[in-house]
Design a protein around this nucleic acid. Structure first.
Lengths: 174, 174
DNA sequence: TCAAGATGCGCGTTGGAGTCCCGAAGGAGA
DNA sequence: TCTCCTTCGGGACTCCAACGCGCATCTTGA
């Protein structure tokens, strides 16, 4: 169900995606101001508030918008240190993977965890207050993970890019 | 400036942080429902809407809440492939770093970029539609970055954890 | 005991959200 | 070419709830 006059469309998975530039403008704006009112958004996008409300609701119903969430300034909580952790398991058996994954989701300092191809290990992104704090995390969270053969940590000195959404999303249609 | 009766406090950088469990409950809830109304939040946290509004505004003014943003379902846009890219430069001179960083921020498919310690290289997180699409990104975005000596890519087979905020944040105070 | 700050209640105002209806634009089909 | 039909946009209206203010009360800490 196209949200508006389908211009061109491309295949996304098994569904046909058809968003025009106004839909993308709505999404781009909501990515910045999730609490914007209908009228406010309507002015920025160039629609009436009625038309905008319809489109926004459609975007929500069709799942393009998953949620509205507040972005916290983690530095204000002292979490200024990002660590990339590479973890190799003793075995790549299904049971070992499951056991590891069941525990890693409980680690409170882990924000991302990927199972990687090739070397068949995991990459974690961990947030810590500082290096000493990471030592504690390593001791109390990471070293207690099951089936781990090797843990290798590297610290991020600086973050150059941090986007929630790749800019390519907002430029696909015109 | 404490938001409420300071219970205990800990040092965050150079600022003193004093959030009680109600502040943390507000933040936790807003992390999920950024569009929740004052009354709605007040009920969940156990405050009157007036008190809640004051605390929320304080949290915004003091920078704990950076923004309210819509979370898009990137899979709906076909971006189902996450790639970790490790890039080493020809030189670690300041000029080389600056030149590289000035270009990497322009890459539309890059969502994260860290300068890493130890090996002195960069780690990028790239979102692609599929492997073929990553080949295109590699060709049109990554290989055009300046001063690059080596590019090494590994694909994420699965994402086990994806949190915006480490759960540790909401459990620090009581 | 006193002062400062935080809470909660009640109020009035405002602004947003939702509904209904109509008009315009574009396609399909005879 | 004409007409029907679908779809989207926009205006007007109503209703409800959110927001913000002021004041009295309570708690906390010095």
């Amino acid at each position: 169900m196209p949200v508006s006059g389908a211009e061109t469309s491309f295949d996304a998975g098994n569904e046909t995606l058809a968003l025009d530039r106004k839909d993308l403008a709505i999404l781009a704006e909501l990515t910045t101001n999730a609490r914007a009112s209908h009228t406010e958004l309507a002015n920025k996008v160039g629609l009436s508030s009625t038309a905008l409300a319809r489109r926004q609701k459609a975007l929500e119903d069709e799942g393009y918008i998953q949620a509205y969430q507040a972005a916290l300034d983690l530095a204000q909580f002292g979490l200024t240190t990002t660590v990339l952790v590479r973890i190799a398991l003793e075995s790549q058996s299904d049971e070992a993977l499951k056991a590891f994954e069941a525990e890693v989701v409980k680690c409170p300092s882990v924000v991302r965890c990927f199972l990687m191809s090739g070397t068949d290990d995991y990459i974690l992104i961990v947030l810590a207050r500082d290096i000493q704090d990471f030592e504690r995390i390593h001791r109390t969270e990471l070293s207690r993970l099951p089936r781990v053969a090797r843990v290798q940590s590297s610290f991020a000195l600086r973050e150059i890019v941090n986007r929630a959404v790749p800019t390519v999303v907002f430029g696909e249609k015109r």
